[in-house]
């Protein structure tokens, strides 16, 4: 999108205050104000505005891919709240002509708005986010009733953008021990799956003081999820399952 193509009467300027850090040059991160011209005759997304800022500051770095809320690359902290830049309308977050963008909290910053998601994916790996079966494979496929399939609604949609886990204070303080909302949502997604045959092992793995029980119901995860999912509810379901199961 080129600003030059827009008639002058449909242009206004906004200030984007952006977290900058280049490890090869900067000792510390700093905030840089970039003034960009945006169209007034239509709404654009925060990601579009970032592109406009990058036209001026080519060194500005951020992740993006699908630009429509499917890939989960452009999670960032927009005016203090985590979200996907590509599906956040600028009009919703612009305050007195200004917007502040920072990297997602709690994870090491690689550069500008890019964080190292290793801790996040390490925790996901621990919950074994794939179907585990022990019985012989049926000839055709492992079937589910429509009702059993419905159990996975609100769970399978997660795109692993990291907005929830990086907004969770419990995850900030214990990113290596507390699994975090995203990983726990996935954990419940497979515990709830009628085809999965490793429920007991999955629950065993969660039964310590940190993995699951560090969730204190702060619900920042639910507040920020760009897909409208509810990790708090998933965690609560796992907790109930842990409390009511009969131990062998």
């Amino acid at each position: 999108m080129s600003a030059a193509a827009i008639p002058v009467e449909h242009i206004k300027t906004i200030t984007m205050s952006i977290y900058r850090y280049d490890p090869t040059v900067d000792k510390k991160p700093y905030m840089q104000d970039i003034v960009v011209e945006i169209p007034t005759d239509k709404d654009i997304m925060v990601l579009d505005a970032l592109h406009l800022a990058k036209n001026q500051e080519p060194s500005l770095s951020y992740r993006r891919s699908c630009r429509e809320g499917v890939c989960g690359s452009d999670g960032m902290n927009i005016n203090g709240k985590n979200g996907l830049a590509c599906v956040t309308p600028l009009s919703e977050v612009l305050k007195r002509g200004k917007i502040t963008l920072r990297p997602m909290p709690g994870l090491p910053v690689v550069r500008d708005l890019i964080v190292d998601m290793k801790q996040f994916f390490d925790q996901l790996e621990k919950v074994k986010p794939y179907l585990i079966t022990k019985s012989d494979s049926p000839d055709m496929e492992r079937k589910q009733t429509p009702e059993e399939r419905e159990e996975l609604d609100g769970l399978y949609e997660c795109i692993l953008c990291g907005c929830c886990s990086t907004s969770c204070p419990s995850f900030w303080w214990n990113p290596d021990k507390f699994l975090g909302p995203a990983a726990l949502l996935q954990s419940w997604r497979f515990i709830a799956d009628s085809r999965d045959e490793a429920t007991e092992e999955r629950l065993d793995d969660l039964e310590d003081a940190f993995s699951l029980y560090r969730c204190h119901g702060i619900m920042n995860c639910v507040s920020v999820c760009p897909k409208g999912l509810n990790p708090t509810e998933a965690i609560s379901n796992i907790r109930n399952k842990l409390l009511t199961r009969e131990k062998a």
Partner: peptide, 14 residues
Amino acid sequence: PVNLNLLTISLPII
């Protein structure tokens, strides 16, 4: 660096 300045991160009512 880690972005964890609590004054810049919004805290919802819950």
